[in-house]
């Protein structure tokens, strides 16, 4: 007789095993970051690829989110005569929540998928095995620079996203909603606190680590040719997004409490 609970049990065990493997992988990646040899050239190259080249997509996302947020808060605030809080809520929403989360989600698509595809292709074409036979640890050469670069550059990107997002709100508020520009900026700077920005940057660092680790993990364990690399890429994006959203809640709850 078929046990109807068996598939659920199998899936649960598989899920737990996957979490265990991913944790072990990130632990090894973290150890590779702090122990020599450290490949500075690779790290700088990844900072450029992950950080600098992500700036346009982060900037465009932030400006539209800031603008839309200002419009929504204006409409919502009008229901109880609180339109004047647009700058306050825009800066709070952008710095604490939308900046890091949306930057994280955009980079899950751009960076995590890219890392998974690149490392996955290297895996299925035996380039990672070749690297090992050339006395070079792939964790140190491939994975550590990517994880470190994403962890360090995402906070910088989020800082840029914060500024651009606030400016998106400013542009809409001043040009469409009739706000005074100087008053809008004064309200923004008077309202925002250092801890709002710091919370966003902490989130960004953690999201950067998740994005690069998930991409590298999926790519490193891919098999089965193009199909396997495709699956790894999809899993990297989905896994990164789910983890980002879950960890975002945990970090927010931790800071709020």
């Amino acid at each position: 007789m078929i046990n109807p609970f068996a598939p659920i049990g199998r899936a649960t065990i598989g899920f737990c095993a996957e979490i265990g493997r991913f944790s072990a992988f990130t632990g090894r990646a973290a150890a590779a970051i702090v122990s020599p040899p450290i490949f500075i050239g690779q790290f700088l190259r990844q900072c450029l690829a992950i950080g600098y080249f992500s700036l346009p997509v982060i900037g465009i996302t932030a400006v539209f989110i800031g603008a839309a947020l200002a419009l929504n808060i204006y409409v919502g605030g009008a229901r109880f005569n609180a339109e004047q809080f647009v700058p306050n809520i825009v800066v709070l929403g952008i710095t604490r929540e939308l900046g890091p989360v949306l930057a994280g989600l955009m980079l899950a698509g751009r960076v995590s998928a890219g890392i998974a595809a690149e490392i996955g292709t290297m895996r299925v074409t035996e380039q990672i095995d070749a690297m090992t036979t050339l006395s070079t640890d792939p964790f140190r050469f491939l994975i550590a620079p990517r994880v470190l670069a994403a962890t360090l550059t995402l906070p910088i990107l989020v800082l840029a996203a914060d500024v651009i997002g606030v400016m998106g709100g400013y542009l809409v508020a001043v040009n469409s909603l009739g706000f005074n520009g100087a008053t809008y900026l004064r309200n923004t700077f008077e309202f925002v606190e250092a801890q709002d920005v710091i919370l966003g940057l902490v989130k960004a660092g953690v999201f950067g680590f998740i994005i690069a680790s998930m991409g590298a993990y999926q790519g490193y364990h891919s098999s089965g040719g193009a199909l396997g690399v495709g699956r790894a890429t999809t899993n990297a994006v989905v896994g990164s997004i789910v983890l980002i959203l879950a960890v975002n809640y945990l970090i927010t709850a931790f800071f709020v409490n």
């Binding site: 074409t125 070749a130 036979t133 006395s135």
Partner: peptide, 15 residues
């Protein structure tokens, strides 16, 4: 392992 050298089937050169 530094004593080893290996030629892979598809050459496995780094793209």
């Amino acid at each position: 392992m530094r004593k080893f050298g290996m030629l892979f089937q598809g050459a496995a050169l780094f793209d």
